[in-house]
Design a protein around this nucleic acid. Structure first.
Lengths: 335, 335
DNA sequence: ACGTCTAGTCGAAACGTTTTGACACATCGT
DNA sequence: ACGATGTGTCAAAACGTTTCGACTAGACGT
């Protein structure tokens, strides 16, 4: 920058003003400065800028992805967030350590590297919020806590998803439905989507007069297979499955087939919050109800950056309705 | 840091020495400093450190993920890289803009924010290398270019994968095999894995006396379905498919089933570089040959950071063999 | 003709570290 | 008893920006 200033015959501060428009600069001076920058291939140093200006244009996406295995929908969120961050001129740091490691989160935000944080895999009572509040780091969430009034978030409308899914099944004549949720440890630690789905399913089932059996299932295809076998042994009257477990669903289908059941003739399946891609990979393609993950990731970043740059204002909270896509795994209940 | 120094009754430089071990500090002084740091909840500021020390401990993972849709194996690489970066004390920046946008890459590395770059989706002749070399930014690749002697990389051994896969099919009596590769634009732009697979397949087929039909296919299940129909119309003698297209494979299976063909009895399928998870989601589970993506992502970071911190030395280049996992989609050729 | 405003520019201080050179003191081999 | 070596500490310079206060010159209203 000193070189640019010298070459353009102005002071460094003038170069800075030309760069940021902080103060007016005459047209001819600006032209000389720009020429000098081009000639020297000058790019502003982000570290110095951040150090002085105490804003780094870096946000972190906190994604403790290990507990659940890898699902495609997660990648959708991540890519959506990353794309949008870049288009808004931000850098996206990916932080994948386990959710319980609060110390590492504290260190991360303490380093003064981040302008803000976007939280994924939110729990109903999420200890990370205290850490971030204490460190005074702005944040937003993809997902929401139990009392989520004072925070910014985007989330899937699980109530609506579950209700519409169960409604769909009821319309087809199903009366006995199993909810295949995430793995037990995940429910125990209170992952928001899993808990909300559970609650919504119980509520909707009661309302629709359905018999609902709620079970947990590890996030692997084999676990799904084992589970559906166990489930059908115990509850032979079951004709439908509502699943919040992208990875177990194919296993459930496989298990049903192995038992000689046809999908959807003998067993209907509808998956909540499963990605399009995963749904289309199965044969038959899976009936799903979910919100667009890419868009949600995008909006998460949008909300966060709005908080960073906008005036204080009230919290932004966006609920995304899922669209029911009836594909090949739901049909009339066998009589 | 000034506060810590004051509280501990030493100078800032001494605090710095205690922090980094740059110079000896007496045990009692160190204890006082540590107490002061704890009391003040001091965390070193990364921006200042980077500005002065000209190393940021930030690396970027350049992952132009949009061209191909989203596949699970990609997420494996990303998570592997992210985990390992963190365990080595680095931050991982995710950069997802399109591969052709060299200008944006130039800007990124020009900002002096990055210690190094890890490149994914490498082309046989990759223009990004020139950009990085010119900007004098250390880099490593997951994948490799055509003449990859002067660079650091980790890559799947596509030759071995393809050869073993075709060998497996030959052993089962297959003589007429189709190679279902990535989408045409991806091959045209020279994506390394796709090109290598193509070449290796042709070479191995010739060697094994196989009749090989190589085709491209968009990365979606429906495209796979359309393709296999077209393919079987034209080449009814086909009994096996070798695929490098995680997302099309389920579509290929579905298409075959719709035609009344059984898998693997009438059509065998083996997928190259498909993730475990995707393979297990299908029914029957898909026979694959692939390297561990998580481990490769990990090693990519390892190699990069080794270059950053180690002495100059020769280039590190690691080829990962794929392991053949025979599952439910390969069987004896129908006679 | 006088103060007031705005455009345009500059020099210097600040952001929070690391690193350099210098110094004091003790230990050691001869 | 003497230089050499090693340990422990400090003050100050640097890293590359942004921003503050100050200044000039012209325009404007009265």
């Amino acid at each position: 920058m000193v070189d640019v200033a010298r070459l353009a015959g102005v002071s460094v501060s003038t170069v800075s003003y030309a760069l940021n428009g902080t103060r007016p600069v005459s047209a001819e001076t600006r032209a000389r400065i720009e020429a000098a920058m081009a000639e020297l291939k000058y790019t502003p140093n982000l570290m110095a800028r951040s150090l002085r200006g105490r804003r780094s244009k870096i946000i972190a996406l906190v994604f403790p992805g290990q507990g659940r295995g890898i699902d495609i929908s997660s990648l959708g969120y991540i890519l959506g967030a990353s794309d949008h961050a870049q288009s808004l001129g931000y850098h996206l740091l990916l932080w994948t350590t386990e959710i319980d490691s609060l110390a590492s989160l504290r260190t991360l935000v303490g380093q003064g590297l981040l302008d803000g944080v976007l939280l994924m895999e939110v729990r109903m009572d999420d200890p990370r919020i205290a850490v971030l509040t204490e460190a005074d780091v702005p944040f937003a969430m993809i997902g929401r806590t139990d009392q989520a009034t004072e925070t910014d978030w985007v989330d899937t409308d699980f109530d609506q998803c579950v209700h519409d899914a169960l409604h769909h099944l009821t319309d087809l004549g199903h009366r006995h439905v199993a909810l295949v949720n995430q793995a037990a440890p995940i429910l125990e630690m209170g992952l928001s989507g899993a808990i909300r789905t559970q609650r919504a399913a119980q509520r909707s089932a009661a309302q629709l007069g359905l018999d609902l059996t709620a079970v947990t299932c590890d996030s692997t295809a084999p676990a799904g297979t084992a589970l559906i076998n166990h489930l059908l042994d115990r509850h032979p009257q079951l004709t439908a499955v509502l699943a919040l477990n992208e990875q177990a669903v194919p296993g459930v289908m496989a298990g049903a087939l192995e038992r000689g059941l046809r999908v959807p003739d003998d067993l209907s399946i509808v998956a909540v919050a499963m990605s399009e891609q995963a749904a289309l990979m199965a044969v038959p393609a899976i009936t799903t109800i979910s919100a667009d993950e890419h868009e949600m990731g995008r909006q998460g970043v949008e909300v966060l950056i709005n908080r960073l740059e906008g005036q204080p204002g009230p919290n932004t909270q966006k609920l995304f309705e899922g669209t029911l896509r009836v594909r090949g795994t739901t049909g009339p209940a066998r009589s």
